[in-house]
């Protein structure tokens, strides 16, 4: 058995009916805010968290590739419900804003105040511009295909430029102990973390460093391709989870 919304009921509510519906909206708003902070943040932190936690992880090779790829998942799943069923063009923005709220609270109170990491070392990245484009494209086109291809690509391609004003200054070169580092690297070496051996092995390995300034756009375009595929996949995952079925047994 599944639920069907009767078409005949789509007329404006007035009086107590309207007040009741509005009260329900507010309850759902609070519910959704904490739901998406909690769930999207855990999903994000345990898949691409390290790139978001630390300024010296924000490299040219992996960060622009993996962060949008995981960042587009929950937005797509939530858009599948909020746009398809409620015509609310804000699923992606809601998810990304919730994630930003969650990460900021944690960076300040868990990293800075508890363990004394400088806040500049643990600034979260933003995906808000990409999320706004994703929502706007879905609203304007009402097309899963167009939003997947152009919205997914935009979500990935906008990631690095929109974060550059925040993190560009940490890419300034410095000379330290006869070596050339970035300011971000220096943060990493000054604040020793127990995860250091793995951390040093993972970032910017391989020969892509020789590509110089091309590494970032290559990663971003690779991410754009993958995001275009990830978006419809998670749209359908979101639809599946939003089933309205009642079972006879579990």
């Amino acid at each position: 058995m599944s639920a069907h919304i009767p078409v005949s009921t789509f007329k404006p509510y007035r009086g107590e009916k309207a007040r009741l519906a509005r009260a329900y909206d507010y309850l759902i708003l609070v519910l959704a805010l904490f739901l998406f902070i909690g769930s999207f943040h855990l999903h994000f932190a345990l898949t691409v968290g390290d790139w978001d936690f630390w300024v010296d992880w924000k490299d040219r090779q992996w960060w622009p590739l993996v962060t949008p790829l995981i960042g587009i998942t929950f937005p797509a799943a939530v858009q599948a419900v909020l746009w398809d069923k409620f015509r609310l063009p804000l699923g992606a923005t809601l998810c990304v804003t919730a994630l930003l709220l969650g990460t900021w609270v944690t960076r300040v109170f868990a990293y800075h105040y508890w363990n004394y990491f400088p806040i500049n070392m643990v600034l979260p990245a933003t995906m808000l511009p990409g999320a706004l484009v994703l929502d706007a494209l879905l609203m304007l086109t009402n097309s899963l295909t167009i939003t997947s291809i152009f919205g997914g690509a935009a979500f990935a391609l906008l990631f690095y430029p929109s974060n550059w004003p925040i993190f560009g200054m940490f890419h300034q070169p410095v000379e330290y102990a006869n070596s050339q580092l970035t300011v971000a690297d220096l943060f990493g070496f000054q604040y020793i973390r127990t995860g250091m051996p793995e951390y040093l092995r993972i970032i910017e390995r391989g020969t892509l460093r020789t590509y110089g300034q091309y590494a970032t756009p290559l990663s971003a375009f690779c991410s754009a391709l993958l995001c275009s595929l990830m978006y419809p996949l998670w749209w359908h995952i979101g639809k599946w989870f939003a089933s309205t079925r009642y079972l006879t047994k579990i």
Binding site: H41, T106, G195
Partner: peptide
């Protein structure tokens, strides 16, 4: 929220 967001990511901070 508290389990999946705040204290979950705080675990990374403590492990470091």
């Amino acid at each position: 929220y508290w389990a999946g967001s705040y204290f979950a990511e705080q675990d990374n901070s403590w492990h470091q």
